[in-house]
Protein backbone atom coordinates (compact mmCIF):
# COMPACT_ATOMS: atom_id res chain seq x y z
CA UNK A 1 0.00 0.00 0.00
CA UNK A 2 1.28 3.42 -0.84
CA UNK A 3 1.04 6.54 1.22
CA UNK A 4 -2.26 7.86 2.46
CA UNK A 5 -3.07 10.84 0.26
CA UNK A 6 -6.56 11.64 1.46
CA UNK A 7 -7.59 11.35 5.04
CA UNK A 8 -11.15 12.00 6.17
CA UNK A 9 -11.50 12.43 9.88
CA UNK A 10 -14.82 12.31 11.70
CA UNK A 11 -16.80 14.08 8.99
CA UNK A 12 -20.35 15.11 9.77
CA UNK A 13 -22.68 16.54 7.15
CA UNK A 14 -26.34 17.28 7.77
CA UNK A 15 -29.29 18.69 5.87
CA UNK A 16 -31.34 21.13 7.88
CA UNK A 17 -34.88 20.53 6.71
CA UNK A 18 -38.27 21.52 8.05
CA UNK A 19 -38.74 18.00 9.35
CA UNK A 20 -35.53 18.16 11.30
CA UNK A 21 -31.80 17.64 10.91
CA UNK A 22 -31.07 14.86 8.44
CA UNK A 23 -27.72 13.42 9.47
CA UNK A 24 -26.57 12.25 6.10
CA UNK A 25 -22.94 11.70 7.06
CA UNK A 26 -22.53 11.07 10.76
CA UNK A 27 -18.95 10.64 11.86
CA UNK A 28 -17.13 9.10 8.90
CA UNK A 29 -13.40 8.49 9.00
CA UNK A 30 -11.69 7.03 5.98
CA UNK A 31 -8.36 6.95 4.22
CA UNK A 32 -7.47 6.83 0.54
CA UNK A 33 -4.07 5.41 -0.46
CA UNK A 34 -2.07 6.26 -3.51
CA UNK A 35 -2.86 4.22 -6.58
CA UNK A 36 -5.80 2.33 -5.17
CA UNK A 37 -9.47 2.15 -6.01
CA UNK A 38 -11.48 2.66 -2.86
CA UNK A 39 -15.08 1.63 -3.24
CA UNK A 40 -17.87 3.15 -1.19
CA UNK A 41 -20.95 0.99 -1.22
CA UNK A 42 -24.39 1.08 0.32
CA UNK A 43 -28.00 1.47 -0.62
CA UNK A 44 -29.59 4.76 -1.77
CA UNK A 45 -29.68 7.38 0.90
CA UNK A 46 -26.84 5.94 2.96
CA UNK A 47 -24.82 9.11 2.54
CA UNK A 48 -22.22 8.14 -0.04
CA UNK A 49 -23.08 10.93 -2.50
CA UNK A 50 -23.14 13.45 0.31
CA UNK A 51 -19.70 12.23 1.32
CA UNK A 52 -18.41 12.87 -2.19
CA UNK A 53 -20.01 16.31 -2.25
CA UNK A 54 -18.42 17.16 1.07
CA UNK A 55 -14.92 16.25 -0.08
CA UNK A 56 -15.36 18.52 -3.08
CA UNK A 57 -17.06 21.21 -1.01
CA UNK A 58 -20.13 21.07 -3.21
CA UNK A 59 -22.61 20.71 -0.39
CA UNK A 60 -25.44 23.17 -1.01
CA UNK A 61 -27.98 24.58 1.44
CA UNK A 62 -29.87 23.26 3.29
CA UNK A 63 -26.89 20.95 3.58
CA UNK A 64 -24.04 21.95 5.83
CA UNK A 65 -20.72 20.45 6.79
CA UNK A 66 -20.86 20.44 10.53
CA UNK A 67 -17.48 19.20 11.55
CA UNK A 68 -14.57 17.06 10.51
CA UNK A 69 -11.39 17.26 8.49
CA UNK A 70 -10.54 16.27 4.97
CA UNK A 71 -6.76 16.12 4.81
CA UNK A 72 -5.11 16.08 1.44
CA UNK A 73 -1.39 15.70 1.72
CA UNK A 74 -1.56 17.23 5.16
CA UNK A 75 -3.76 20.23 4.28
CA UNK A 76 -7.33 20.37 5.57
CA UNK A 77 -9.33 21.05 2.43
CA UNK A 78 -12.33 22.24 4.40
CA UNK A 79 -10.33 25.09 5.83
CA UNK A 80 -8.94 26.45 2.59
CA UNK A 81 -10.24 29.69 1.12
CA UNK A 82 -12.81 29.50 -1.69
CA UNK A 83 -10.45 30.70 -4.37
CA UNK A 84 -7.60 28.52 -3.16
CA UNK A 85 -9.73 25.40 -3.11
CA UNK A 86 -11.24 26.18 -6.50
CA UNK A 87 -7.84 25.58 -8.05
CA UNK A 88 -7.67 22.11 -6.51
CA UNK A 89 -10.81 21.02 -8.34
CA UNK A 90 -10.07 18.87 -11.37
CA UNK A 91 -6.35 19.54 -11.06
CA UNK A 92 -5.80 17.59 -7.87
CA UNK A 93 -9.22 16.15 -7.09
CA UNK A 94 -11.56 15.43 -9.98
CA UNK A 95 -15.22 14.49 -10.10
CA UNK A 96 -17.42 12.47 -12.41
CA UNK A 97 -21.06 12.97 -11.54
CA UNK A 98 -23.95 10.62 -11.30
CA UNK A 99 -26.51 10.43 -14.14
CA UNK A 100 -24.68 12.54 -16.65
CA UNK A 101 -27.68 13.39 -18.77
CA UNK A 102 -27.70 17.05 -17.87
CA UNK A 103 -24.23 17.70 -16.53
CA UNK A 104 -22.97 19.43 -19.64
CA UNK A 105 -23.92 23.00 -20.56
CA UNK A 106 -26.58 22.68 -23.29
CA UNK A 107 -25.62 25.86 -25.10
CA UNK A 108 -21.87 25.35 -25.32
CA UNK A 109 -19.90 23.15 -27.64
CA UNK A 110 -17.89 20.34 -26.04
CA UNK A 111 -14.63 21.96 -26.99
CA UNK A 112 -15.54 25.17 -25.18
CA UNK A 113 -16.44 23.21 -22.09
CA UNK A 114 -12.91 21.89 -21.97
CA UNK A 115 -11.38 25.23 -22.81
CA UNK A 116 -13.17 27.29 -20.20
CA UNK A 117 -12.01 24.90 -17.52
CA UNK A 118 -8.42 25.13 -18.65
CA UNK A 119 -8.66 28.87 -18.94
CA UNK A 120 -10.12 29.40 -15.48
CA UNK A 121 -7.32 27.32 -14.03
CA UNK A 122 -4.80 29.57 -15.69
CA UNK A 123 -3.33 26.79 -17.78
CA UNK A 124 -1.34 28.23 -20.59
CA UNK A 125 -0.50 25.64 -23.18
CA UNK A 126 0.39 26.01 -26.83
CA UNK A 127 -2.45 25.34 -29.20
CA UNK A 128 -0.89 22.29 -30.84
CA UNK A 129 -0.01 20.76 -27.51
CA UNK A 130 -3.55 21.32 -26.30
CA UNK A 131 -5.11 19.75 -29.37
CA UNK A 132 -2.79 16.78 -28.94
CA UNK A 133 -3.76 16.36 -25.30
CA UNK A 134 -7.44 16.57 -26.15
CA UNK A 135 -7.08 14.04 -28.93
CA UNK A 136 -5.12 11.71 -26.68
CA UNK A 137 -7.54 11.81 -23.80
CA UNK A 138 -10.59 11.51 -26.02
CA UNK A 139 -9.20 8.50 -27.83
CA UNK A 140 -8.35 6.86 -24.54
CA UNK A 141 -12.06 7.17 -23.79
CA UNK A 142 -12.94 5.78 -27.19
CA UNK A 143 -14.18 9.14 -28.45
CA UNK A 144 -13.44 10.83 -31.75
CA UNK A 145 -12.20 14.42 -31.79
CA UNK A 146 -15.20 15.31 -33.95
CA UNK A 147 -17.34 15.43 -30.82
CA UNK A 148 -15.51 18.57 -29.78
CA UNK A 149 -17.54 20.60 -32.23
CA UNK A 150 -20.84 19.12 -31.12
CA UNK A 151 -23.39 20.17 -28.59
CA UNK A 152 -24.24 17.91 -25.65
CA UNK A 153 -27.68 16.95 -26.95
CA UNK A 154 -26.03 15.43 -29.99
CA UNK A 155 -24.20 12.84 -27.89
CA UNK A 156 -25.53 9.59 -26.51
CA UNK A 157 -25.61 8.85 -22.79
CA UNK A 158 -22.49 6.74 -22.96
CA UNK A 159 -20.63 9.37 -24.94
CA UNK A 160 -21.62 12.05 -22.48
CA UNK A 161 -20.40 9.97 -19.58
CA UNK A 162 -17.08 9.36 -21.27
CA UNK A 163 -16.79 13.04 -22.14
CA UNK A 164 -17.25 13.87 -18.50
CA UNK A 165 -14.57 11.39 -17.55
CA UNK A 166 -12.25 12.94 -20.14
CA UNK A 167 -13.05 16.33 -18.67
CA UNK A 168 -12.09 15.10 -15.25
CA UNK A 169 -8.79 13.63 -16.40
CA UNK A 170 -7.40 16.19 -18.76
CA UNK A 171 -5.54 17.99 -16.02
CA UNK A 172 -4.03 14.82 -14.60
CA UNK A 173 -5.59 14.84 -11.17
CA UNK A 174 -4.24 12.73 -8.41
CA UNK A 175 -7.64 11.69 -7.12
CA UNK A 176 -10.81 10.93 -9.03
CA UNK A 177 -14.16 10.70 -7.31
CA UNK A 178 -16.61 8.78 -9.49
CA UNK A 179 -20.23 8.91 -8.32
CA UNK A 180 -22.24 6.01 -9.77
CA UNK A 181 -20.32 6.15 -13.07
CA UNK A 182 -22.00 3.09 -14.52
CA UNK A 183 -25.50 3.30 -13.15
CA UNK A 184 -27.28 5.23 -15.90
CA UNK A 185 -25.64 3.32 -18.74
CA UNK A 186 -26.35 0.33 -20.92
CA UNK A 187 -24.30 -2.81 -20.33
CA UNK A 188 -21.85 -2.22 -23.15
CA UNK A 189 -21.08 1.33 -22.04
CA UNK A 190 -20.78 0.09 -18.50
CA UNK A 191 -18.03 -2.28 -19.48
CA UNK A 192 -16.28 0.50 -21.37
CA UNK A 193 -16.32 2.80 -18.37
CA UNK A 194 -15.12 0.07 -16.08
CA UNK A 195 -12.19 -0.62 -18.34
CA UNK A 196 -11.36 3.07 -18.39
CA UNK A 197 -11.34 3.21 -14.62
CA UNK A 198 -9.15 0.17 -14.35
CA UNK A 199 -6.68 1.56 -16.85
CA UNK A 200 -6.59 4.82 -14.97
CA UNK A 201 -5.39 3.07 -11.89
CA UNK A 202 -3.00 0.72 -13.63
CA UNK A 203 -1.46 3.08 -16.15
CA UNK A 204 -1.73 6.55 -14.70
CA UNK A 205 -1.62 5.62 -11.04
CA UNK A 206 -4.72 7.70 -10.28
CA UNK A 207 -6.36 7.02 -6.95
CA UNK A 208 -10.06 6.54 -7.35
CA UNK A 209 -12.95 6.77 -4.93
CA UNK A 210 -15.62 4.66 -6.60
CA UNK A 211 -19.09 5.28 -5.25
CA UNK A 212 -21.72 2.79 -6.30
CA UNK A 213 -24.39 0.57 -4.79
CA UNK A 214 -23.72 -2.00 -7.49
CA UNK A 215 -21.83 -4.71 -5.60
CA UNK A 216 -20.83 -6.50 -8.77
CA UNK A 217 -18.99 -3.41 -10.02
CA UNK A 218 -17.37 -3.02 -6.62
CA UNK A 219 -16.21 -6.59 -6.70
CA UNK A 220 -14.53 -6.08 -10.06
CA UNK A 221 -12.90 -2.74 -9.55
CA UNK A 222 -12.27 -1.81 -5.94
CA UNK A 223 -9.09 -2.74 -4.13
CA UNK A 224 -10.53 -1.74 -0.81
CA UNK A 225 -14.10 -1.08 0.17
CA UNK A 226 -16.06 0.85 2.73
CA UNK A 227 -19.68 -0.08 3.34
CA UNK A 228 -21.93 2.72 4.49
CA UNK A 229 -25.24 2.50 6.24
CA UNK A 230 -27.36 5.37 7.55
CA UNK A 231 -24.52 7.84 7.40
CA UNK A 232 -21.93 5.66 9.08
CA UNK A 233 -19.26 3.25 7.94
CA UNK A 234 -20.10 -0.26 9.05
CA UNK A 235 -17.27 -2.20 7.47
CA UNK A 236 -14.02 -1.44 5.73
CA UNK A 237 -11.18 -3.47 4.30
CA UNK A 238 -9.64 -5.16 1.23
CA UNK A 239 -12.38 -6.09 -1.21
CA UNK A 240 -11.35 -9.70 -1.65
CA UNK A 241 -11.31 -10.32 2.07
CA UNK A 242 -14.71 -8.71 2.49
CA UNK A 243 -16.25 -10.82 -0.22
CA UNK A 244 -14.68 -13.97 1.08
CA UNK A 245 -15.71 -13.34 4.62
CA UNK A 246 -18.12 -10.44 5.19
CA UNK A 247 -18.16 -9.55 8.87
CA UNK A 248 -21.02 -7.09 9.21
CA UNK A 249 -24.51 -8.59 8.73
CA UNK A 250 -25.41 -5.79 6.34
CA UNK A 251 -22.37 -6.49 4.20
CA UNK A 252 -23.30 -10.10 4.07
CA UNK A 253 -26.83 -9.29 2.88
CA UNK A 254 -25.48 -6.89 0.27
CA UNK A 255 -23.15 -9.48 -1.16
CA UNK A 256 -25.80 -12.15 -1.13
CA UNK A 257 -28.06 -9.92 -3.15
CA UNK A 258 -25.76 -10.01 -6.18
CA UNK A 259 -27.38 -12.23 -8.78
CA UNK A 260 -25.20 -14.63 -10.71
CA UNK A 261 -25.63 -16.94 -13.66
CA UNK A 262 -27.10 -20.26 -12.69
CA UNK A 263 -29.38 -18.87 -10.03
CA UNK A 264 -32.53 -20.89 -9.88
CA UNK A 265 -34.46 -18.83 -7.42
CA UNK A 266 -34.58 -15.01 -7.32
CA UNK A 267 -32.23 -13.56 -4.76
CA UNK A 268 -33.50 -12.21 -1.47
CA UNK A 269 -33.51 -8.47 -1.07
CA UNK A 270 -32.83 -6.92 2.28
CA UNK A 271 -35.94 -6.77 4.42
CA UNK A 272 -37.23 -3.72 6.15
CA UNK A 273 -37.31 -0.07 5.19
CA UNK A 274 -34.41 2.37 4.92
CA UNK A 275 -33.69 4.18 8.16
CA UNK A 276 -35.05 7.61 8.99
CA UNK A 277 -32.01 9.86 9.14
CA UNK A 278 -33.77 12.48 11.25
CA UNK A 279 -34.57 10.03 14.01
CA UNK A 280 -32.31 7.08 13.41
CA UNK A 281 -32.91 3.85 15.32
CA UNK A 282 -31.39 3.84 18.79
CA UNK A 283 -28.16 1.99 19.30
CA UNK A 284 -26.98 0.25 16.14
CA UNK A 285 -28.79 1.80 13.22
CA UNK A 286 -29.12 -1.47 11.41
CA UNK A 287 -30.70 -3.41 14.24
CA UNK A 288 -34.34 -3.25 12.98
CA UNK A 289 -33.32 -5.15 9.86
CA UNK A 290 -30.51 -7.28 11.26
CA UNK A 291 -30.88 -11.06 11.27
CA UNK A 292 -28.45 -11.24 14.21
CA UNK A 293 -30.16 -8.63 16.30
CA UNK A 294 -29.53 -9.03 20.02
CA UNK A 295 -32.34 -7.39 21.97
CA UNK A 296 -31.16 -5.27 24.84
CA UNK A 297 -27.72 -4.84 23.34
CA UNK A 298 -28.08 -3.75 19.74
CA UNK A 299 -30.85 -1.29 20.48
CA UNK A 300 -29.00 0.52 23.24
CA UNK A 301 -25.30 0.61 22.42
CA UNK A 302 -23.87 2.21 19.34
CA UNK A 303 -21.12 0.10 17.79
CA UNK A 304 -17.82 1.81 17.03
CA UNK A 305 -15.63 1.01 14.07
CA UNK A 306 -13.00 -1.38 15.42
CA UNK A 307 -9.90 -2.74 13.77
CA UNK A 308 -10.03 -6.48 13.41
CA UNK A 309 -6.82 -7.16 11.56
CA UNK A 310 -4.50 -4.99 9.49
CA UNK A 311 -6.71 -2.78 7.39
CA UNK A 312 -9.93 -4.55 8.29
CA UNK A 313 -12.53 -2.79 10.37
CA UNK A 314 -16.11 -3.39 11.36
CA UNK A 315 -18.74 -1.60 13.45
CA UNK A 316 -20.87 -4.34 14.93
CA UNK A 317 -21.60 -5.43 18.44
CA UNK A 318 -21.07 -9.05 17.42
CA UNK A 319 -17.39 -8.34 17.41
CA UNK A 320 -16.93 -6.19 20.48
Amino acid sequence: MGEEILSIKDLRVSYLTRRGEVKAVDGVSLGLYKGEILGIAGESGCGKSTLAAAILRLVKPPGIIKEGKVLYRGKDLLKLGEEEFRLYRMTKIAYVPQGSMNSLNPVMRIRDQFMDMLKDHGLKIKKEELEERLREILSSMGLKTSILDRYPHELSGGMKQRTLIALSLIMNPEILIADEPTTALDVVSQRGVMNILRDLKDQRGTSIILITHDMAVQAELSDRMAIMYAGKIVEVGPTEEIYNEPLHPYTRLLIESIPSLGDEKPRKSIEGIPPDLVNPPKGCRFHPRCPFYIPGKCDTQEPMLIQISGGRGVACLLYS
Binding site: Y88, R89, M90, Y95, P97, N102, S103, M117, D120
Partner: peptide
Protein backbone atom coordinates in the same frame (compact mmCIF):
# COMPACT_ATOMS: atom_id res chain seq x y z
CA UNK B 1 -29.67 22.36 -12.98
CA UNK B 2 -27.04 19.60 -12.90
CA UNK B 3 -24.65 21.36 -15.24
CA UNK B 4 -24.31 24.22 -12.81
CA UNK B 5 -23.09 21.85 -10.12
CA UNK B 6 -20.75 20.28 -12.63
CA UNK B 7 -19.44 23.70 -13.60
CA UNK B 8 -18.55 24.28 -9.99
CA UNK B 9 -16.91 20.86 -9.76
CA UNK B 10 -14.80 21.84 -12.75
CA UNK B 11 -13.30 24.57 -10.66
CA UNK B 12 -14.63 27.38 -12.82
CA UNK B 13 -14.64 30.90 -11.51
CA UNK B 14 -18.00 31.94 -10.08
CA UNK B 15 -18.32 34.73 -12.63
CA UNK B 16 -17.80 32.22 -15.44
Amino acid sequence: EDFILMAEAKGLKSST
